[in-house]
Design a protein around this nucleic acid. Structure first.
Lengths: 330, 330
DNA sequence: AACAAAAGCGTGATCGCTCACGCAGGGCTT
DNA sequence: AAGCCCTGCGTGAGCGATCACGCTTTTGTT
C-alpha cells in the first residue's frame, strides 16, 4: 500500500510551497498563471487528490450532510419521499446520502453512517432505541413513521388514527357501507399489528373490522395487491369499499378489479395510502390517503434542522396526519 | 457564534484525558464502566458532536463516498437507476450521496460536491468538459449517457445505434411496417437531435423516418406521452409500431391508445425505452429497450471503482448496448 | 525619482481527532 | 516474594489541508 499523495509532495515536486499549491488548486488570486499551470500539471501527473477531510477540517466547514435511510429505494413511496426530501435538503444547503438496510444489519449501517454524516434520518426498524443511539455515537437521529418511547432521539410519526377517523365517514357519506382492508403486514408473533390496521379497525364498524386480507409475498408490490384483491373479493363479496395498505397495493387491486370486470369506483370504491404521483396516472386515478405532498417532508426537514443546529436541543416528537386526495377511484 | 464543543472540553469537564473520551465514545476496551458512563453523561450534557472530518483525517479513513447526479429523482428511470447503483455501491462499501441539478447551476453543484465526495458520477448536461473538470478540483468524474470528446474524464455511453439496428428488424419480422417515434427532445438551435432519434432514423426506412412527433411539456411524463400519441395517430394514422423515447412516455401512449380504442399490440405495437420495472405491471406489459437491468450499472460501478482507486488511471470510455425486453406490448 | 500599492510566494500555527506508546497499580502464578 | 500480565489511564506526535501573516519583487503614481 503506497502512501497517499499529499499537498506536500506536489509542493516539493513543483518547487513551490504548500500555500501556493492550495492557491493553484482552489483557484485563488495571488499566483501567476505560469506557476498555477505548473502546479496543476504536477498534481495531475502525480495523481493528486486533495483530502476532503483535511480541507474541511482546516476550513472548519459549515457543510452539513444528512443520511436518509429506508427499506428500499425500489419502492416508489420511498423514492418519491427521497426526491421531496432532497429538495428540502438542498434548499437548506445540505448534502444528502442515501442508504437502505436491505443488505446490511441496521446497527452496523448506522455505525458506518455515523462516521460520515451529521444526522441520520429515516425509517429504522431496530426496536432497541438505546442500541440505535449508541450506534450513532453522538450523531442525532430523526426516526420516521414510528412511535418513540425514549427521550434520546427525534421522531415524526404518522397519525393514521385521525386520518382514518376522517376518511371513513367521508366515504360513508358517499355511500360506502361494507369496508375491507388490504393489509400488507401479517399478524404474528414477530409483528405487531400495523398502525394502519389498528386505525382502520377503530374507524370502521365491527363487521368491516373482520374484512382484512393480508397481501402475501412479494410484500409491498403491485402483484401482491392483485392477489390480495382477488382473495378479498372471494371471501368478502359484498365489500363495496377497499382500503389498501399502500398505493402500490391499490394499483394491483385496480388491475385485479379490471380483470374481474369490477368497476372502480362504480361497484367498489378503492382508496390507497401514500399519495404517489404514480396514482394520478392510473385509470381510474387513485384516491389516496396521502403522506407525500403533505407537510410531512417539511416537518422532517424542520426537525432535522433543529437536530443539526447542535448542542442541547430538546428531543422533538411530532406527528402528521395523512391527507385524503380525492381522485377518481373513490 | 459559539465555539464548537471539542473532545478537549469533554475531557476537561469529565476530569479525564482526550484518549479516555475517545475510548468512551467509540466503545473501545481499556476503560472502566464508571468512567465511560461519566464521560458519556458529560458529552451529552455539553451537546458534544464528534467532528467527522477530524476523526476521518486522524484514522486516514478508507471510506469512500460517491455522488450520483441526475436531472430529477422524480423520474422513475433515475430513481430505479439510483437504487441499482446504490446496491452496487454498498456492495463495495461506498457511501452514496445524491444530487440533482434542478435547483442549482451545475458547475456550482459540482464544485460543492467536489469538497464532499471522492468521485462524481452522473448525467451531466454542462457541455464544456474542461469547465466540468476544473470545477471538480481533482475529484474524478464519470459521465453517463453522453459522448466525451476530451481525455479528462471517464464516461459510459449508451449505444442506441446498435440497439435500434437490432430492434427494428426484429419488429419487422413480427410484422411491423410503418414505424413512428415519440420523441421527447425538440429539435432546435439549442438542442442537438437526441441520440435515440438519430439511431431511430438510421434504422428505419425513409417513410418512417419522417414519422416523428415530439412530446411537449411537461417533458418526460406520462401526460406528454398521451398527448404525443394522440397527435401521432392523427398525423400518421397508418403507423403500426410506435417507439417511445422512454417507458414513461410509452405508458402515456398506452393510456391514449386505450382511450382511442386502439388495441396494443393488436393494432399498434408499442416499445418503450429504459426497462422500468413499472413497465411490467401495465396492461399490456411494456416491451422496452432496457437500460435498467443490463450491465449498465455494473459498468458504472466498475469504472467508478477504477477512478476511485486513485493515481494515474487512464480515462475509460465504455459503451453499453440497451437490450430489448420482450413483454406484451410488441 | 521616490514611495505606495499590489502581485507573487513562503512560514508557522491550527483544525479536532486517533494512534502508538508509556506508566502505575492490582491480582496471578510459581 | 519476585515476576508477570492485565486493567485503566495519560502524553506526544501526527493526519493533510487552510489561514493569517510576512517577506520580496514588481508595478504604478505623482
Amino acid at each position: 500500500m503506497q502512501r497517499r499523495v499529499t499537498i506536500e509532495d506536489i509542493a516539493r515536486e513543483a518547487g513551490v510551497s504548500r500555500q501556493t499549491v492550495t492557491r493553484a488548486m482552489n483557484d485563488m488570486p495571488r499566483i501567476s498563471e505560469a506557476t498555477r499551470a505548473r502546479v496543476l500539471e504536477v498534481s495531475e501527473r502525480l495523481g493528486y487528490r486533495p483530502s476532503r477531510f483535511a480541507s474541511n477540517l482546516a476550513r472548519t466547514s459549515k457543510a452539513k450532510t444528512i443520511a436518509f435511510v429506508v427499506d428500499s429505494f425500489r419502492n416508489p413511496y420511498y423514492s418519491e419521499l427521497t426526491a421531496d426530501l432532497l429538495d428540502a435538503a438542498s434548499a437548506r444547503g445540505w448534502q444528502m446520502t442515501i442508504a437502505s438496510h436491505e443488505n446490511e444489519p441496521e446497527l452496523e449501517l448506522i455505525g458506518r453512517l455515523a462516521g460520515e454524516v451529521d444526522a441520520i434520518v429515516g425509517y429504522l426498524s431496530e426496536p432497541d432505541e438505546t442500541a440505535l443511539v449508541a450506534a450513532a455515537r453522538g450523531v442525532p437521529i430523526v426516526l420516521l413513521g414510528s412511535t418513540v418511547t425514549t427521550e434520546s432521539l427525534h421522531s415524526i410519526d404518522l397519525d393514521f388514527i385521525s386520518a382514518f377517523r376522517k376518511l371513513i365517514p367521508e366515504l360513508e357519506s358517499r355511500g360506502s357501507r361494507r369496508f375491507a382492508l388490504l393489509e400488507s403486514q401479517p399478524l404474528g408473533t414477530e409483528y405487531d399489528p400495523s398502525t394502519r390496521r389498528i386505525a382502520y379497525e377503530r374507524a370502521v364498524d365491527t363487521r368491516s373490522a373482520e374484512a382484512v386480507v393480508v397481501c402475501e409475498a412479494p410484500p409491498q408490490s403491485v402483484d401482491a395487491g392483485e392477489l390480495g384483491f382477488n382473495e378479498l373479493m372471494d371471501r368478502f363479496p359484498d365489500t363495496d369499499t377497499v382500503i389498501a395498505f399502500s398505493d402500490l397495493i391499490a394499483m394491483g387491486a385496480l388491475r385485479a378489479a379490471h380483470h374481474r370486470g369490477i368497476d372502480v369506483p362504480g361497484q367498489v370504491r378503492l382508496v390507497g395510502v401514500d399519495g404517489l404521483s404514480l396514482g394520478a396516472v392510473t385509470s381510474p386515478a387513485l384516491t389516496s390517503l396521502a403522506i407525500l405532498g403533505t407537510e410531512f417532508t417539511e416537518q422532517i426537514a424542520d426537525v432535522t434542522e433543529r437536530a443539526l443546529s447542535g448542542a442541547e436541543v430538546p428531543f422533538e416528537h411530532r406527528s402528521v396526519v395523512p391527507l385524503v386526495i380525492w381522485r377518481e377511484s373513490a
